[in-house]
Write a protein that binds this DNA or RNA. Structure first.
Lengths: 191, 191
DNA sequence: TGATTAATTGACTCGTCAGTCAATGGATTG
DNA sequence: CAATCCATTGACTGACGAGTCAATTAATCA
């Protein structure tokens, strides 16, 4: 039904905000429900239990990311242009908004023990990787795979460091480092 | 006193094991105490509260890492040799033992809200960075700083990806990628 | 309208857990 | 030996939270 979808969305949004506010998955379903302006029982009605709510939230975040990256690639055909767009998307404002950072960190933790979270994360990694490889291949041939692994790792690592350093506000330097790495990798090909 | 230090050590070791077993900081002080073979009250006696116990555990892990890296650098004077040792240390078996992975992930989460955890993490980052810069400077001059940032980020990112992918057992490929990145960075200097 | 179905509530249960504390036991010391 | 101090226990409390459920309200529809 329409109402059901709307409620789910609202509860997921509230979950992200609440996780963001607390920094942890140690948030109560009551807090989330309160933030969404509904009774606690409703969250259980729609999601069954807390973990399902978290997983639905993770799926939502990954979906949003997927939509964003596709949007940013529209009309871009040059490999370098596409690579730049992909790498920049990971540091776009939406990735730092509200509780996105907290959600990501906690989902990493969750992925250790929840097979479903693990699956979602692996899916995200695979997509990211093949996105990169697709545009790297024409530039780097067989080296594309290795370069993509390094760029992917670098993005995760710099995102992590950036997100945890509260003195940083503007992710510009992090993006610059990633793009520099791309440049370095490409220039090393002709060595 | 002697007994006090011993108990603290035992409780910290038990904390790492317990976090490793659960994957989360959602472990009870009672579980930890039980694993250490003492009564729950004793943990509070020595650490005051749960967060202090976690912070002490984090300090212990960072100290162990520091000792390890210093040991691995002994006798190495060539810059590339030192860089290799530093990078490899981050993927040495001890970094994957027991609950080390879980501890790291959860301390990232904790760092969002605990100023002390934040401080410890920043300290670790600074030390790691200056270790790298020290050996990169003779090879790369002013580029040393940028290269160190990228290598540092890459290490964190690949560690994360490796640690979360249960199908991986041997961290060899991750190390190889990091060393390859170093090679690429150095070769790009003469371009 | 009246009847059927879906949405929503919030009080309640049952378990759990952080942290306290009074009591016990064991050393150490004078 | 007596007195003092430290280590240690584990029962206890007070609070809180996940999940249930019977009851209420709103929407749908024939």
């Amino acid at each position: 039904m329409k109402a059901e979808q709307k409620r789910r969305q609202e509860l997921i949004a509230a979950t992200i905000r609440e996780i963001g506010a607390e920094g942890t998955l140690n948030v109560t379903v009551s807090q989330i429900a309160k933030r969404a302006g509904v009774s606690p029982g409703l969250a259980f009605h729609y999601f069954g239990d807390k973990e399902q709510l978290f997983l639905a939230t993770m799926r939502s975040i990954l979906r949003t990311y997927g939509v964003l990256i596709r949007a940013n690639l529209v009309g871009k055909t040059e490999p370098v242009e596409r690579l730049t767009a992909i790498l920049e998307t990971n540091f776009s404002p939406s990735q730092f908004e509200d509780g996105a950072v907290a959600a990501w960190l906690n989902f990493y933790v969750l992925a250790q023990t929840s097979p479903e979270a693990q699956r979602l994360l692996a899916l995200y990694h695979r997509r990211f990787h093949s996105n990169l490889v697709y545009s790297l291949r024409p530039l780097a041939g067989d080296a594309a795979h290795g370069i993509a692994e390094r760029l992917g790792g670098l993005v995760d690592g710099l995102y992590l460091r950036f997100a945890l350093n509260r003195s940083h506000v503007d992710p510009g330097p992090a993006v610059a480092q990633v793009l520099k790495a791309l440049e370095v990798e490409l220039s090393a090909l002709d060595g």
